Computed example of a mutant assay.
Amino acid sequence: MDITYGSDSDTRQGKWENGKFTATLPLNDDALYYTVSAQLQGEGDIYCSVTIDGKTEKAHASGGYNICHAQANQGLLGGWD
């Protein structure tokens, strides 16, 4: 599985281990978004999510080489959408 995650100014490579991937980053109030993308390598089924301040954005992908992409965006008036 090919995993990338981070914010608009900090992209990182993730590692799929024991059937899961979890990461925690410090919250940067200047970030416009936080995201995670995971691409299946052949067949599979995956759920992904990003949680900030108790709000969760979720996504799902299944089948060969599809991409699960979840993103939390900074709101125009503050907070996270």
Rank of each mutant, 00 (worst) to 15 (best):
M1E: 10
M1Y: 09
M1C: 03
D2Y: 10
I3V: 08
I3S: 09
I3Y: 06
T4E: 13
T4C: 07
T4M: 06
Y5H: 08
Y5G: 10
Y5E: 08
G6A: 09
G6I: 01
S7Y: 09
S7G: 13
D8E: 07
S9V: 08
S9N: 12
T11R: 14
R12L: 13
Q13E: 14
Q13L: 08
K15A: 13
K15S: 15
K15Q: 15
K15M: 10
E17Q: 15
E17C: 04
E17S: 15
N18W: 11
N18Y: 12
G19H: 05
G19D: 06
G19T: 04
G19W: 03
K20A: 12
K20L: 02
K20V: 02
T22W: 01
A23W: 07
A23R: 05
A23T: 07
T24Q: 12
L25K: 08
L27R: 06
L27K: 10
N28S: 13
D29S: 13
D29G: 00
D29A: 12
D29K: 11
D29Q: 14
A31I: 02
A31N: 07
A31T: 04
L32S: 14
L32A: 14
Y33L: 10
Y33Q: 11
Y33H: 12
Y34D: 09
Y34S: 06
V36N: 11
A38W: 00
A38P: 01
A38H: 10
Q39V: 09
L40R: 08
L40I: 07
E43K: 06
I46D: 06
I46P: 00
I46W: 00
C48F: 01
C48A: 11
S49P: 00
V50T: 10
V50A: 12
I52L: 12
I52P: 10
I52S: 09
I52N: 09
G54N: 08
G54M: 07
G54L: 07
T56G: 03
E57Q: 13
K58A: 10
K58R: 12
A59I: 00
H60A: 01
H60F: 05
A61Y: 05
G63S: 05
G63D: 06
G64F: 09
Y65N: 15
N66Q: 14
N66Y: 11
N66T: 14
I67Q: 06
I67D: 04
H69D: 11
A70S: 11
A70N: 04
Q71T: 14
Q71V: 12
Q71E: 15
Q71M: 13
A72C: 05
N73M: 11
G75H: 01
G75Y: 02
G75V: 00
G75C: 03
L76H: 02
L76P: 06
G78E: 05
G78C: 02
G79H: 02
W80M: 02
W80A: 03
D81T: 08
D81C: 00
